[in-house]
Computed example of a mutant assay.
Amino acid sequence: MRRTKQDTAETIHKLLEVARQHFTRHGYADGSLEDIAKDAEVTRGAVYHHFGSKKGLFLAVLELVQSEVAQRLEEEAARSEDLWEQLYLGCRAFVIVATEPNNRRIMLIDGPAVLGWEEWRQLDEQQSMRQLHEQLDIMQRQGYLKGIRLEAATHLLSGAMNEAALWLAQITDPAEAEQSLEDCLQTLRRLLDGIR
């Protein structure tokens, strides 16, 4: 039986959704391709056909997660017309969204461990860091951020937010996590106000 492009796209979409659930729940190391294939109602061969390996499937899931995070950052930043508020809202959204349960393990814990630091950083540069750079570039061209090098500011802010998200992702006590997130967001606001 010949498969259409639509059938293929649906299979890939279903595999990504099921794999995301498995990697979120069990992590990469304990995520089983057999279980993913079974829950997606495909053969293990179909997983290999579309993604090449378990790591290839994980990479595709990570790219999906990062793409969704990037979309949410844009939506949050767009809630304001003020450039400084857009910057804060986008940065705030990154910290919150990256630490949500359905993103945290894939993006912050397993991502760097499975792909290695350099490949993980390259993916981050293509998504969240790119958005941050674009926002800072717009602000600089409109007369904000005078005397600040764009590349330095992008790397410093991105590094601070990644480190904050990694720190928050390790906190297991809900009350402590909530207070730490609030502390982090207040500090982020003061940090951004400091370069205003």
Rank of each mutant, 00 (worst) to 15 (best):
A60S: 12
G116K: 03
T4A: 04
K146E: 14
L136E: 09
G143H: 04
N162V: 10
E163N: 01
A19F: 10
W117K: 12
E74G: 05
Q122T: 03
A153D: 02
L62I: 15
Q122K: 14
A37I: 08
E163Q: 00
Q127M: 07
A165H: 02
I109D: 05
R196W: 01
M139L: 14
E119V: 14
V65I: 15
P112T: 06
R105Y: 15
Q127P: 00
R104H: 04
T43C: 09
L57I: 09
E81I: 06
D124A: 15
E34V: 09
R79V: 04
A70N: 09
Y144N: 11
L15K: 01
H49E: 13
Q21K: 09
L166H: 08
L73D: 04
R121L: 11
V47Q: 03
E74Q: 04
L62P: 13
W167E: 07
E17Q: 13
A29G: 14
W84F: 13
W167L: 13
A169G: 00
L123Y: 01
E176C: 00
V61S: 14
A37H: 10
K146G: 15
V61E: 12
L89E: 07
S180G: 00
I109F: 03
F58G: 06
D7S: 03
N162F: 15
D183M: 09
A9L: 02
Q126W: 07
A177R: 14
Q86R: 08
V97M: 12
T154Y: 05
D39R: 15
Q126T: 02
Q135L: 11
Q66Y: 13
Q170C: 03
R105N: 09
M1V: 00
S158C: 01
C91W: 06
R44K: 15
K146Y: 12
Q140D: 06
P101F: 08
M161D: 04
Q66G: 10
R121F: 14
F58Y: 06
K38T: 05
A93E: 10
A98V: 06
A113C: 09
Q86N: 07
R189C: 02
L33E: 09
I148E: 05
R20E: 15
Q71C: 02
K146M: 10
R104E: 02
L57E: 01
D124L: 11
F94Y: 08
A113N: 13
F94M: 14
S128D: 10
M129D: 08
H133D: 01
L115V: 12
Y28G: 13
E76F: 07
D110K: 15
A77P: 10
E176T: 06
T172H: 11
R20K: 15
V69F: 03
S53L: 10
T8Q: 09
I138S: 05
T172Q: 12
T154P: 04
A93Q: 08
M161N: 02
Q66S: 10
C184E: 02
H49I: 09
W84L: 08
A78Q: 10
A29S: 14
V47C: 08
H133E: 02
K54I: 15
S53P: 10
T99E: 13
L33C: 04
T24L: 14
Q131S: 05
A37L: 03
G111T: 06
R190F: 00
D30P: 00
I148P: 01
Q71E: 12
L156A: 05
